[in-house]
Design a protein around this nucleic acid. Structure first.
Length: 610
RNA sequence: GCAUCCGUAGCUCAAUUGGAUAGAGCAGCUGGCUUCGAACCAGCAGGUUGGGGGUUCGAGUCCCUCCGGAUGCGCCA
């Protein structure tokens, strides 16, 4: 932001006034400047007087008066008043709004880079080999990608890592099962794998021996623990699989080959889904559990050597000072656990990737797990990069996806709903709507090729799904209601796309923004729209700090709403005064770019027509 | 049993992190297309923020308590 930014100017003016009014010790008091909640109060408000009143032992209104006596807003503020307990309400000069819009009308739209340009590692998607993706993966992918794009926008280098579940007894069991089924792994499909996975599970379940002991081998889907009942008890099958695992680990060529093919098959399918969703993620940065396997005994040794772990009933555990439950990092039988792998992963991300921020986009039910792992990693200083910079470790936990019945989303057969089928359904319904509307001869999409319409329909359907996921607090459960999200009315992704498309046609008809156009808000709707535009950078900064994309959704929805009001109220193409026409066109163009940029940060494409 | 989180309009969700009269969307009702795209707009109605107490100029937000719900809890991932 430049010095033309009226908010920065007001902020500085108030700081100066506070210092002048109260002297020593009040050099740098935050005026707590906020957008006014209601237009009748003003455009912006300062809430500092109440807090200062307490500190000074004076009535807040008196404090507010003293501040206003010393303040010099120059030309920026046309009206200031004190209201309620001591709110300072400010109304901005239209010329100041115009100047500020001019200043933000750059490529970056006012968004500034973060202080650190170092790498951020984001642990997201995290699929299980040999299993289909389900809605839990959707959340991780969609939220993770939105966060990643926002951080990239702020100058960060982001590594999106798929922490694959590609190792351990469950994987060996599937391999064993595939061999039993006589599957040729050269032509294996994800269906084959998924079937083998379930069969291995079912076989084990059918054998009652050792039921309780083997309850764990299928205990959920890797990072995204599923809720289905997991049972197994096949000692024989398990024993065979364990032998296979040992041979695999020893480098048996045939087994290793099969294992690789199984992973490739799974990841090809994952990539297809990821691409269709428009999530920017490639296999080159993936790191699965197998990658860390060889490091795990070293991890345990490190904790033992540092005196941070102890033996307990044959297992190796890490104790926490303020918790009674320790964390197990090696089982009695010598095997390692999820926690051990995650410790190795943190070390890899700080030491090898030099990431100073590590984010986990993982189901919120794993909150305790990550708290343990983070705390343990700090015990050994593994949260620090080689140069000593401490990395910020964050678990961004998301809630469960529920069906219309308020229970975790399932298909009719009771399995977790396949992600691909949901995406395809959304795209189909988006395309249907687009095609139907294009039949109308007056529709801007009339006469477009089938391919173009399909592309638009895809954008509409994907935006519907993503917006539904991103627009409320990620940590809460949310109800996946296809009918509601593809209604394309109200607070939805397509509503934002629609606003964008309308502006595009408007600018198209006008032949672009006229040369020398200047902002000059005259109508209240224009000023409201302009004022809201000025808050874009702030909300982007907020999202990259708080990791809460729903604030950006809220911002964009309001922007689209204010535009719709403006559009209804103010003629653009037909207004006589050519300066006002030019001004409105430029305003439209800025709205279009902010919408497009914001949607891009959320991972949504904004077609020119729809 | 212990721990964590949640409870806001009929439904689905917000609330700038302690600020003014708690806001949106859907559903309902009333208006607005021979006029820049009606996937829209303007308006009406809908609330004891689960109950009760406390902290202070001020509480949906912080503390205590009760009620209701979800999740997690040593050898699964």
């Amino acid at each position: 932001m430049t010095t033309a930014d009226p908010i920065a100017l007001i902020d500085q003016s108030l700081r100066t006034a506070i210092h002048a009014a109260f002297g020593e010790g009040f050099e740098d008091v935050d005026p707590i400047l906020r957008e006014a909640q209601k237009r009748e109060f003003g455009d912006w408000q300062a809430n500092v007087a109440m807090g200062l009143g307490k500190r000074l032992g004076k009535p807040p209104r008196e404090v507010a008066e003293a501040i206003l006596e010393h303040v010099d807003f120059g030309e920026v503020v046309t009206e200031s008043s004190i209201a309620g307990p001591g709110f300072v309400n400010l109304r901005l000069a239209p010329s100041a709004v115009a100047k500020a819009l001019l200043a933000m009308d750059t490529k970056d739209l006012g968004v500034i880079k973060e202080a650190s340009d170092r790498t951020v590692a984001i642990d997201m998607v995290s699929v299980n080999v040999a299993k289909r993706m389900h809605v839990g993966h959707l959340r991780s992918a969609v939220i993770g990608d939105a966060i990643a794009r926002t951080l990239e926008r702020r100058g960060r280098t982001v590594i999106r890592q798929n922490h694959l579940g590609d190792w351990g007894t469950p994987i060996a069991l599937v391999l064993t099962q595939l061999r039993a089924n006589g599957i040729n792994l050269d032509h294996v499909t994800l269906e084959d794998l998924d079937t083998a996975y379930r069969e291995a599970q079912a076989n084990a379940k059918a054998d009652r021996r050792g039921a309780e002991a083997t309850n764990r081998f299928f205990a959920g889907s890797h990072r995204l623990a599923e809720l289905e009942a997991q049972n197994s008890g096949a000692d024989e099958v398990v024993a065979a699989a364990k032998q296979d695992l040992v041979r695999l680990q020893a480098g048996d060529p045939k087994l290793h080959d099969d294992w690789r093919k199984m992973i490739d098959c799974t990841l090809d399918a994952v990539q297809e889904t990821i691409d269709l969703l428009g999530v920017r993620m490639r296999r080159d940065s993936d790191k699965g559990e197998s990658f860390y396997n060889s490091q795990l005994s070293g991890v345990v040794d490190s904790f033992l050597d540092a005196g941070k772990a102890r033996e307990d009933d044959g297992a190796i555990v890490v104790d926490f000072p303020e918790r009674d439950r320790p964390m197990i990092i090696r089982k009695r039988d010598g095997g390692f656990l999820y926690a051990t792998t995650d410790l190795a992963a943190i070390r890899h991300r700080t030491h090898d990737l030099a990431a100073d921020r590590i984010l986990y986009i993982v189901d919120i039910r794993q909150r305790d797990h990550f708290r343990d792992v983070f705390e343990a990693s700090r015990m050994l200083g593994w949260d620090k990069c080689q140069d000593g910079t401490a990395a910020e470790l964050n678990h961004l936990g998301f809630g469960t996806v529920l069906g219309a019945n308020g229970k975790p989303l399932k298909t009719r057969s009771g399995t977790n709903a396949s992600l691909m089928s949901l995406i395809e359904e959304a795209i189909r319904r988006g395309t249907d709507a687009v095609v139907t509307r294009s039949q109308d001869a007056s529709a801007p999409t009339h006469g477009l090729s089938e391919q173009d319409l399909a592309g638009i329909g895809r954008a509409v359907g994907i935006a519907a799904i993503k917006y539904a996921d991103l627009s409320s607090d990620a940590s809460k459960d949310y109800v996946f209601d296809m009918d509601r999200m593809v209604a394309f009315e109200g607070d939805t992704g397509p509503y934002l796309l629609y606003a964008h498309a309308r502006i595009c046609s408007l600018l198209d008809r006008a032949g672009g923004v006229p040369e020398g156009a200047n902002f000059q808000p005259t109508d209240p709707a224009e000023k409201d729209l302009g004022l809201h535009l000025l808050g874009y950078a702030k909300v982007v900064h907020q999202v990259s700090d708080s990791l809460e994309p729903h604030h950006l959704c809220g911002y964009l929805h309001r922007l689209a709403g204010l535009f719709a009001t403006f559009y209804q109220q103010c003629s653009v193409l037909k207004v006589e005064d050519s300066d006002i026409r030019a001004s409105r066109l430029r305003l439209c163009d800025l709205v279009r770019r902010v919408l497009s940029d914001g949607l891009d940060l959320l991972g949504m494409a904004a077609p020119k027509r729809m």
